[in-house]
Nucleic acid binder design. Structure first.
Lengths: 246, 246
DNA sequence: CGAGCAATTGACCGGCGTCAATGGGCGTGG
DNA sequence: CCACGCCCATTGACGCCGGTCAATTGCTCG
């Protein structure tokens, strides 16, 4: 836990790349990244930003708000795969996978910056090392999904919920949005149900139990962790898979 | 379903790249791929090929046999994330994610070909288009895990099992290993339990039900699908996510 | 101020887990 | 070539976590 709000004003892509790259960026690379033309748009909560089956010609960076990726069965059941925090580039995969296998929705009101694939390709041709960084970013996203998979497959509802809280608070803190282990929590209980693979009713029971155990509090879309060690232990949480610090 | 055994003799990496690339490979690219130095090794069933926490300096292609990636909770529970068939490169991610977040085990006896990361990096520097193809390969792997996530999160045991069968038979057929919808099936029931997020006992009940419905038969490590349409329908299976045909 | 959805809780149910026992396949050693 | 042991396969009995149904109480927003 060491938030770094001093980064908040930097170019979001630059901050992201800096946190992921295994080497020091050259000033040319920095300049090229900052010069990437970006078209800003606003989405309301619950709105889809892109949809399964789309063949987008652009990717987007999340500038503010929280977004989620999800898939649905033909029967209409929804499974949320991961959440995204400001600075993330949720659909970078569309650069090389033309038709999207997921939808991405705004959870809270979101500002996003669209970047044309063509511009990204030109950037990567000019600066091949950035390609490795972006590749790495998509690999980290995949690692997060794998951890979620372990979560839904092999942990009970209580540990699952605790794990989700641990991950999101950790990631929000990494971009300065969870000072004092406290953060905005825009997800409704039906929304969380889709992320955990359980029902809204059971989400409610689980949160009630987490509160009763003194691990956290959650009221009017605001979450605070009171006992990080206890929560992490209940969650079996090990943040290595997030590949945050270097 | 259209197997292509005539490919069986080609260089495995070349076959894989061909099936994934969105463009026609140049003969230089083909030559460079085939010239990639590869160290062949043999693994017994149940043996780990690489382990969570490893920092390998090489990746490997699966030449024969079936392998699986899995993660474990601290409590020792295991979750299988995906299976790999001949031609796949299961741990390509290690090229840019130094420490592995997963283990990869041989399910049946496996022949694998190790390739040094340094050699891959040199290859990609010389032929940047191949980098896009490899990147794309890791993105497809991620898409498969997402589909599994939808599977374990939002489908019941019966559909989950059916879905797993559909996926594996489809992928095996794509490399010519499931003619007539019939294939080797080395996975034990405890093994399948870890893949589906249920118990071995329930795997048994589920297979019994699938047999009773006339969808498939499975004896002495050999599986045959009798009613593909029925199985795919029970599974809610749509192979788009596998990104096979172009 | 009413509509609509989220939150909360109780009662009840069912899919899947747990426990336990039996049978089968296969490798190893006598 | 048979006996033993080990693990997988199979099945029944029973229990519990989480699902389903339903009612009530907030919030939030038009």
């Amino acid at each position: 836990m060491n938030g770094s709000n001093q980064n908040a004003t930097r170019h979001p892509l630059l901050r992201k790349v800096d946190s992921i790259a295994l080497f020091e960026l050259s000033s040319e690379e920095r300049g090229a990244l900052e010069a990437l033309p970006m078209q800003v748009a606003q989405f309301e909560a619950y709105q889809d930003i892109v949809r399964e089956g789309d063949r987008p010609g652009r990717s987007f960076a999340l500038l503010s708000g929280i977004a989620s990726t999800y898939k649905t069965t033909r029967g209409g059941k929804r499974q949320v795969m991961s959440y995204y925090v400001p600075g993330d580039v949720p659909d970078f995969q569309s650069l090389h996978l033309q038709t999207l296998d997921i939808s991405i929705a705004a959870i809270s009101p979101c500002r996003v910056g669209f970047v044309q694939h063509e511009a990204v390709r030109a950037l990567l041709r000019a600066h091949p090392r950035l390609g490795e960084v972006f590749w790495r970013a998509t690999l980290i996203d995949a690692a997060v999904v794998r951890e979620w998979m372990l979560n839904t497959g092999r942990r009970d509802a209580y540990a699952r919920m605790a794990h989700l809280v641990c991950e999101l608070v950790t990631r929000l803190d990494a971009v300065g949005l969870a000072p004092e282990l406290s953060c905005d929590w825009p997800m409704t209980q039906p929304e969380l149900a889709d992320a955990l693979g359980i029902t809204p009713v059971h989400v409610n029971r689980t949160i009630r139990d987490l509160k009763a155990a003194g691990l956290l509090s959650l009221r009017s879309r605001r979450l605070t962790v009171h006992d990080w060690a206890g929560l992490a232990s209940a969650a079996d949480f090990d943040p290595t898979y997030l590949h945050l610090g270097q």
